[in-house]
Write a protein that binds this DNA or RNA. Structure first.
Lengths: 200, 200
DNA sequence: CGACGACCATAACAGCGTTATGAGAACGGT
DNA sequence: ACCGTTCTCATAACGCTGTTATGGTCGTCG
């Protein structure tokens, strides 16, 4: 049983800890088959361990779901951080919106976990919600820059929140099949949103 | 299959059919405790029947979920239909947005079922999605009237869809705790959205 | 070296959605 | 009016779920 691959005593090196392995397996399973496919027994089997390990590392299924929730927002934050600086605040806003939508459509199951409640008995705790909201900081920065240039007007955080909400709404309806997925219209839509906050 | 059943001949005119009873119990349970509390066994007990009845009437849990999905959109459609006609298209649009948000915040669990996927193995079928989209027709009508008056410009359905998406986004983030619930800001937000489609 | 505590595999428990089985009522054709 | 068919639903079982209890192995530290 359990060919002792590694012991946690000395330096971790590049070996994967059990926690990392479980998280990676769950993350892949979520991406491939969606939230309904996430069963502790299946995850434990795929990670070559038992369900009990999930409990010692994550405290249970909601704890594992929270790790996936954060992992989803971390990916979003990483993709945003990897974007080139366009130096034009309005262009930057457009790029952020496109990136947001692109990440969401590319990882629909993660997006549902990040903005919906697809896993029973899991509701993101305060800290996770705060972390999620913090991934919108680049958007706030771009709005601030645009306001400083006189290209937008209004309270910075309020405007940023409006853009976030509107962008999320479009993506959410697309993902749920309530409106058609349409890149061109999505772009038009967002441009109009930005226009709505231009000084006139 | 399933012509409407008749009870014995006596005058029980307002008697509830088993299907109605199950649906009402499930609807109350959803409103009171949320989607996670919906278990067929519990519903069957509360409706004084067995789980099997749910299968003959709804085909299973996803079928019951679909009935609740439609019931949620029907309530929304009814509330909208009960609104007085304001005769001013823009005012009508504002009133529709407020009604949409009010219904959503008053029935958060239903709203999650209507726009999210909180019940395992249930994805709304085409017809249910079409029914859901049809509840937005009064919004389309108001946009059409506003365009006819020259108060808005653009393709009618496109503009209506944009307003729907943006409104949904705000409500969704509020319900999920990602932005603060704020009536005044919600109104401001929607007014800006409408402004964005005014001719300039 | 021995006691302690962390970790995890095994197994059990209660609950879930679903399905099989069978009994009883309702229906339709003759 | 009769009888066979069909529909409906209660009971019980099946396999799955998340969770918890138990016990054993191992590293840590007094």
């Amino acid at each position: 049983m359990s060919a002792d691959e590694f012991k946690p005593d000395d330096s971790d090196g590049d070996a994967e800890t059990m926690r990392e392995r479980v998280l990676r397996v769950a993350d892949d399973l979520l991406a491939d088959e969606g939230p309904d496919a996430l069963s502790l027994r299946r995850i434990a089997d795929l990670a070559d361990t038992s369900t009990q390990a999930v409990y010692t590392r994550f405290g249970g299924k909601p704890g594992l779901a929270d790790a996936l929730f954060r992992s989803g927002y971390r990916r979003l934050a990483d993709e945003i951080a990897a974007m080139p600086d366009l130096h034009d605040p309005i262009e930057q806003l457009r790029a952020l919106a496109l990136a947001y939508r692109r990440v969401a459509l590319a990882n629909p199951h993660h997006y549902k976990l990040m903005t919906g409640r697809p896993i029973a008995d899991y509701d993101p705790p305060r800290e996770s919600l705060a972390f999620a909201a913090s991934t919108m900081e680049p958007l706030v920065d771009a709005v601030r820059a645009a306001c400083a240039d006189g290209r937008l007007e209004g309270d910075v955080r309020t405007v940023a929140t409006r853009l976030w909400a509107a962008g999320h709404g479009r993506v959410s309806l697309e993902l749920h099949g309530l409106v058609e997925v349409d890149d061109a219209e999505a772009n038009e839509y967002f441009d109009r949103l930005v226009d709505a906050h231009r000084p006139r």
